[in-house]
Design a protein around this nucleic acid. Structure first.
Lengths: 115, 115
DNA sequence: ATCTATAGGTAGACATTCTTCATATACGCC
DNA sequence: GGCGTATATGAAGAATGTCTACCTATAGAT
């Protein structure tokens, strides 16, 4: 397995944020899993690595909770791929996750600044 | 178990941030576990809840990694309590955790803004 | 024609970090 | 003496990750 420069410094995900990042990505358009991962990695400036072993279980649980639907379709390269689509309930969930995240983040920063 | 107003809206910790918060708290002074938890909760504006079941295991692993030392001493209320002290290596670790946290955070925010 | 890289997905063992619940003990106050 | 608060321990279980490995399909290079 070749290990190129872009591999070197990826950080681990902050646990609990992957679902939010996936939901957010899907506000843009329906996408298949692989594309979601690439999108997140690219937008993050290649800081975040979305492992397949994290991605696909996450996609499953998001579906199980009714926040995504999925169906098979052809990918741009001709292969079949499972396309995920945000549901209205998923969109509400994203809003909830973002505000909770912001709240927690502000709290953490207060501790870091004032401790 | 009475459930007063300050109970109501505490958020869960962002997994992985507790160690950082503990280390940061101990830059202030040596403290016992219970006081560390209170300090974090208070500084966070009562947004974060530090459960005992998270706190004490965290303190143990921080010691095991050499970032804290501890010894028994009397608490202000007269009871005995275990006082934790940051080691130099713990202070370096804190720096590393903060910069990693900042990096990941910036990455997440790029995804949230630009997706 | 085969090789190899890339795209895309599935599966499972394992690690880490939390939450929840239960238990224990010491002190201070009524 | 009983109650509330302070302080600590431990174990069960969930959630979320990582790592490793495997599988299939297509495209492009040799």
């Amino acid at each position: 397995m070749p290990r190129d420069a872009s591999d070197v410094e990826k950080e681990e995900l902050l646990k609990g944020t992957l679902d939010m990042l996936i939901l957010q990505t899907l506000t843009l358009q329906s996408m298949h899993g692989y594309a979601i991962a690439q999108h997140i990695e690219r937008l993050s400036g290649d800081v975040l690595a979305v492992e397949q072993g994290s991605l696909y279980p996450a996609l499953e649980r998001l579906q199980k909770r009714g926040w995504l639907t999925s169906k098979w379709g052809p990918s741009p390269t001709g292969r079949r791929a499972r396309y995920y689509t945000l549901t209205p309930s998923g969109r509400r969930q994203l809003g909830a996750e973002i505000s909770s995240f912001d709240r927690v983040l502000a709290a953490i920063q207060r501790v870091l600044e004032r401790a």
